[in-house]
Design a protein around this nucleic acid. Sequence first.
DNA 1: CATAGACGCGAGAGCGCTCTCAACGGAACC
DNA 2: GGTTCCGTTGAGAGCGCTCTCGCGTCTATG
Lengths: 350, 350
Amino acid sequence: MTYRKLTIEDIAHQAGVSRATASRVLNKAPGVSAELRMRVDRVVADLGYRPNAAARALASGRRDALDLVVIACHGDISLFGAQPYYSRVIAGVLAALAGTDTQLRVNVAGSADAPELIERVAQSVTAGAVLVNVSPELAARFHARCRRVVSLGATAAHVPAVEPENSRAAYDAINFLHRIGCRRIAAIHGPDCNTCAAGRRAGHLEAVRELGLPDIAVDGGFRREGGYAAATRLLAEHPDLDGIFAACDMMAAGAVQAITDAGRRVPDDIAVVGFDDSAVAACVSPPLTTMRLPVEQMAAAATRALLEGAAAPHWRRFFPVEMVVRNSTGPDAALLLPPAHPVSALAGRR
Amino acid sequence: MTYRKLTIEDIAHQAGVSRATASRVLNKAPGVSAELRMRVDRVVADLGYRPNAAARALASGRRDALDLVVIACHGDISLFGAQPYYSRVIAGVLAALAGTDTQLRVNVAGSADAPELIERVAQSVTAGAVLVNVSPELAARFHARCRRVVSLGATAAHVPAVEPENSRAAYDAINFLHRIGCRRIAAIHGPDCNTCAAGRRAGHLEAVRELGLPDIAVDGGFRREGGYAAATRLLAEHPDLDGIFAACDMMAAGAVQAITDAGRRVPDDIAVVGFDDSAVAACVSPPLTTMRLPVEQMAAAATRALLEGAAAPHWRRFFPVEMVVRNSTGPDAALLLPPAHPVSALAGRR
DNA sequence: CATAGACGCGAGAGCGCTCTCAACGGAACC
DNA sequence: GGTTCCGTTGAGAGCGCTCTCGCGTCTATG
C-alpha cells in the first residue's frame, strides 16, 4: 500500500466527479444521484481515504472533538489519578461517543489556568465540553464563551447540567445512620471548590439539623489519606463518635483504616457510609455501605446532550443516588433501608 | 469583551506588521527584531488572541494533540472504567503535557475497530500516540502507519516502548512467596491479549519452573469479580493452596474476598501478592503486598519521548517494579524482602 | 567604493476541505 | 414552443494559518 497523502481531489478525480460532489458524498449531504454516490463511495473504500480533520475543521468551523474539562482544586492535578471517579466519567463519555466519530479530549487544569483553558476550548467547540464539577462561576464563564457546554454536577442556573442528587443522598445517608442507632455522626467532606462536595455537605447539614444532632464535619480532600487523617482527628476530638459519613469511598476507606488502627471496630463501634460506590467500596473490609452514583450514566447523558445539541441554557437532568448497603453499617442494616422516597421533609428537594 | 473572531490578520494589522511576522512571533521563530516581537506580543495579550488550532494544523501539517490509544481486549471497553490503571496512565500523560499546549485525546476501541482507529490517528499524528498495552502486531501496524508512536508495555522489537519489568517482577513475587514458606502457589493472570499480562505470566512460569513448583494459573480478566471467581475455583481444585499471585490489585482484592468467604484466612492460610500498587491495594484488608508499577512515571516518560521526537525505532526505556510489602503476606514478611537484585538466575532478564 | 553576506521583513502561494452560487438538463406546465 | 422549476453538478472563493522566497537595509570584507 502506498501512503501518499490522499486528498479529496484525488477521490474526485478517480471517481470522475468534482471536488464538491465528492465532498457531498463524504458528508452524506443530499442532492447527489445514487450513481455518483456509489462511485465515490467505492473509490473512497478502495483507496482507503480519510478526510483531513484539520482541513475539515477549518473550512466548516466544526470540530470532531468533545472536550472533557476538569478543574483541579487548588491546582492539585494528582487527584485525577487517585480518584476512580474520573476514569468512570471518561468511560461514560466514551460509551456515548462510541459510533460517532467524535473524539474525546481531556483537559485537566488548575483553576489558575482556567482562563486559558476556556479560550482553548472556545476556539474549538462544536461537539462541546463536559465540565466536571467545575465551580458555578467558572462554569458560567465557560458557558458564556463556549456556548455548547454541559456541567456534570450542580452549577449556575443557566448552565445546562446533569446533576446527581447529592444533597438528597447525603441527607438519606445521615438519616440512615441515625436509623440504625447512630447518635454522634460526623461527616468527612470533599474540598469546597468541588460542587459535588458542596451538595453533600448541604444534605448532611440539613439532616443533622432536622435530627437535632451536632454538626461535626471536616475536610478530607477526597483522598484516602485525607479520610484517614480526618477520621483520626474526629476520633480524638469526639471519643463518643458512632457514625461517619464520608463524601467519597476513598475517604471512607481511609476512615475505616483509621478507626481500625485506633482500636475501634467497624461497624460495631462506628458505622461508616461512603459515597460513589466506586471499585474500592467492595474491596474495603468490611465492604462499604455507600451511595451509588451513576457516574457513567451521567457522563454519557451529558455527552449525548452535547452531541444532540440539546443543551439549552436551562436544560437539566437529575440522577438519583441509590444506597447500597454492605457491612460497614452492620449486618442487619439492609433491613433498615430508607423508604423509597420519604416525601415529607424532602418535598421539593433535589 | 467582544467575541468577534480574531485572526492573525487582526493582530498583524493592530501591531502594524505583516501576517508573516505576526506568525513568527506567535511561533517563537527567529528572525524578528525585539521591538516588533514585543509589539506583537502586546497586541496578542491585549486582544486575548489565540491562534486557530485547525488552521495551524492544516497549514503546518503539525498537530497540537497527542493520542492515547487503548485497545480493549475482546472489545470490552468497560475495563477502562473499572481499572485504576488507566486513570493513572492519563494522569501521567497529563503531567508530562502540562505546560506544553498539547492536548490529550483519548481513544478507546475494541480490537475490531483498530484499523479505523489507526487511520484516524495516522492522519493527525504529530505529537504522536501512546499505545497502552497494545498487542505487538497491532503496535507494529500503528508504527508503520503513524510513525510517531510509543508503546506502553512490551511490544514488537522495532516499536519504541516504555516497558515495566513485568516478567522480572512476577518472578520476584513468586520467589518471595516461596521464601516466606509457600509451596503451593497459584497465579491469577490477566487476559492474554494484554502485553503486561503476558509478561507477568512469563515471569511466573519461569519462577515456578526454577523452584520445581507446579504451574497453577487461571485468567481473572483483570477484574475484581474475575479474581474472586478465579480464587474460588483455585481453592476448590487445590485445597492445599498456600499462596496466590494476582497480576493486578483488583483481582487480588477479589481473591482475598474469595478466600475469606471460603473460610480461609489471609495471610495465615494463604498469602496474597497483588500487582500495580493501585489505590485499592491499601484499602483491602489485609492491605496488599504488591508490585509497585510506576504507571504515572512510565506514561510521562512515553509522552516526553513523543514530545521530544526521541522515539527512534528501537528506543526503549525500562522501569523497575518495586515490591511493596504489606500484610497480605504476613506480618513478618517485610523482613524477607528479596535482595536488591538476585544476580544469578536473572542475568539478562528484564 | 564595490561586493558579499547577514538579517529583518512582507508578499503570496498554498494546506485540504466546505459551501455558495451559477449553470445545465430535463420534466412539467401554460 | 416557451417558460418555469427542480434536481444535479461544477467552479471557485474562502477558512486562518504557515512558510518559502525575494527584496531592502545594514554591516563586514577586499
